[in-house]
Amino acid sequence: MNEHEDFSIDCKTCIGAGTTACNDCFVTHLLANDDGPIDYVPVVLSEVPRLPDPQEVAIALFIRSGLVDDPIQLVPVDEFTGYGVPVHA
């Protein structure tokens, strides 16, 4: 997902756990509730699916609606500028 190594913050392995430094730790503030700090539960993250290319989505919609041939037939520029009238050299 990123180029950096994975890291974790674990209060059980922190050298400042249980000291006055723990009271000022931002992790304690983030993970604390009315009963005190909560236990960290590791979660396996799944890969985020790739979003479809907007152009692919648009072409698929045109094909489904019958506005574009399937498979798509590309038209040369000369023929396109001739408004669909084939230009034969």
Score class of each variant (00 low, 15 high):
M1R: 12
T20K: 13
N2A: 11
H88A: 09
I9H: 12
P52H: 06
D6M: 08
P52F: 01
P86D: 05
I15S: 10
V48C: 14
D6P: 02
V41A: 04
V48Y: 09
E47H: 07
F80E: 09
R50Y: 09
P71A: 11
S46M: 13
D69H: 11
K12C: 15
D39R: 06
V75L: 06
D34S: 12
I63K: 01
C11D: 00
I63W: 04
E56R: 04
I59W: 00
D34Y: 03
T81A: 12
A17V: 05
V57K: 03
E79Y: 04
V41T: 08
A32S: 15
V75F: 03
P76D: 15
T19C: 03
E56W: 00
C22E: 07
E5M: 15
L74S: 14
C22A: 14
A32E: 14
Q73S: 09
E79P: 00
H4K: 09
A17N: 08
I72V: 15
I72P: 02
D35E: 11
L45C: 14
C22I: 06
C22T: 02
H4Q: 13
I9R: 15
A21L: 11
E56G: 01
D78E: 14
P52S: 07
N2E: 09
T81V: 15
L51P: 02
T20H: 12
T13I: 07
G16Q: 07
L30N: 08
S65W: 00
P42Q: 10
P37L: 06
G16L: 04
P76E: 14
